[in-house]
Design a binder for these strands. Structure first.
Length: 273
DNA sequence: CGCAGTGTTTTTGC
DNA sequence: AGCAAAAACACTGC
């Protein structure tokens, strides 16, 4: 369930821990996590390279190395990056790969094996990143921008659209539900029926919910922990996600659950129109 | 014990 | 074409 706020939290920690450090060794425990590259090639090209920076694009972690190489990490559902110090490697049954640096490192753990690692050059990296929509928290992403994007996709339902990574990068099931609760909009509304006020409230919800979730270091419902193994604090601030049958904090109505585009969707039947 | 539920992206099917 | 469902996997909870 790592979405934008969880990935952002991990990226900030990776950056402060590993920027400028050299990857001394990579251990591939489940080589199947690699996408489009042979295990030996990955190891040969990554070992000995210095980490220049760690960035995020949508839900992707970008570990930028020397020689214009980037390790792309996608955590999908249950992927985790677990840091360690000294020789106290935090390896467990779900560990798929281990990156060793001088005196520290991190494990890539992933229970369900949906997560992936790959190594790309600048051209391939641009090809992959260009498929993603804008970064919702980018200062250049404004209301007018959002409006015109929305109305080019008018016949879609609003929640599935918010989660479409080529529309907007980084929003998943948890934050889509929370954003639409904030906006007072039912998740299955068709986009062309939204009023200008509702569009503005959704836009404001995107910014507010994501910023606050980053401040809380993400949401830990089941699996997610950050680089230092800590859970996120946003779980206690969720208004609708996973609260079906419980009273709405605003009106007291019971939160409802429905299935939309194959995902569980939570909303207040009275506050969301 | 068995099976539905969990959620992201890609692939397949209608 | 364009959307919906299934698949990839493995554990939890009922």
């Amino acid at each position: 369930m790592p979405e934008l706020p969880e990935v952002e939290t991990i990226v900030r920690q990776l950056n402060s821990e590993l920027k400028g450090e050299t990857i001394e060794k990579v251990e591939l425990i489940s080589p199947g996590v690699l996408k489009d590259i042979e295990p030996a090639d990955f190891v040969n090209q990554v070992e000995g390279r210095k980490v220049l920076n760690v960035n995020r694009r949508g839900k992707l972690i970008l570990v930028e190395l020397e020689k214009d190489l980037t390790v792309l990490i996608h955590l999908r559902l249950t992927g985790k990056i677990v840091g360690f110090n000294g020789d106290r490697v935090k390896k467990d049954f779900s560990t798929r790969a281990i990156f060793y640096f001088k005196g520290k490192g991190f494990c890539f753990n992933d229970l369900r094996k949906f997560g992936s690692l790959c190594l790309v050059d600048l051209l391939e990296r641009e090809r992959i990143l260009s498929k993603l929509g804008p970064e919702p928290l980018d200062s250049t992403f404004g209301l007018e921008n959002f409006q015109s994007l929305l109305f080019s996709q008018g016949r879609k339902k609003v929640k599935p659209l918010l989660m479409d990574q080529s529309f907007l990068a980084g929003i998943g099931n948890i934050y889509a539900d929370e954003i639409l609760y904030f906006a007072g909009v039912k998740p299955d509304r068709f986009v062309f029926t939204l009023t200008p006020l509702e569009v503005r409230r959704i836009f404001e919800g995107i910014k507010k919910v994501l910023v606050e979730a980053i401040e809380a270091k993400g949401t830990s419902f089941r699996d997610y922990v950050d680089f230092s193994g800590k859970k996120g604090g946003y779980l206690y601030r969720l208004k609708v996600y996973r609260r079906s049958g419980e009273p709405c904090y605003n009106c007291g109505c019971l939160i409802k659950k429905m299935r939309l585009a194959g995902r569980s969707t939570h909303f207040c039947p009275s506050c969301q129109k």
